[in-house]
Amino acid sequence: MNLFRLLGDLSHLASILVLLHKIQTSRSCRGISFKTQALYVAVFVARYLDLFWRYISLYNSAMKVFFIGSSCYILYLMKYRYRPTNDPSIDTFRIEYLLVPCAILSLIFNYNFMPTEILWSFSIFLESVAILPQLFMLQRTGEAEAITTHYLAALGIYRALYIPNWIYRYFTEGVIDPIAVTAGIVQTGLYLDFFYVYFTKVLQGQKFELPA
């Protein structure tokens, strides 16, 4: 564990708490893509079910349980408790365009051709693009509540912090994980446009609005 990874994980944790806070206090999931949230459930289940056969640390296991549990709970809130506030007509990204390529990529790029490793690769590839339905929705509506942008910023910062973590691990431990690094760089890249607007507008107290 190093500081970059710890702060990255905490940022990931914070993003989920911010999202839960937004939904609970506004009693609404307006502006949140159900498809992105469903993809995160798939990502966490595919990757973290290894907690039944691989023990790393209490920290690692507790985080895995939290990510699976909280993502399922968010899906429940969107699908049942606050269903009327969820508008599927603006959540139109076709997720099969993400699922199918990620499935193919995971069959080609994995560290061992066995179900658990293929699932791990699949989850890494899927996570890197899971935010696209959400960003697509943002692009369509052209604006977002400040709290939604804080959620997205924390989520983007999480993966961005993993990059210095990998560089640090390369020099201190000599390990490199080409699948995670490639997908992680792609994932962080997807946030660059968003980050630009977030840091130049939202953090200056302006509304998050995309140019028409």
Binding site: R5, M63, K64, Y170, G174, V175, I176, D177
Partner: peptide, 10 residues
Amino acid sequence: GSPPSSHDEL
């Protein structure tokens, strides 16, 4: 470097 097979990251 070699790839970590332990998947110790989240």
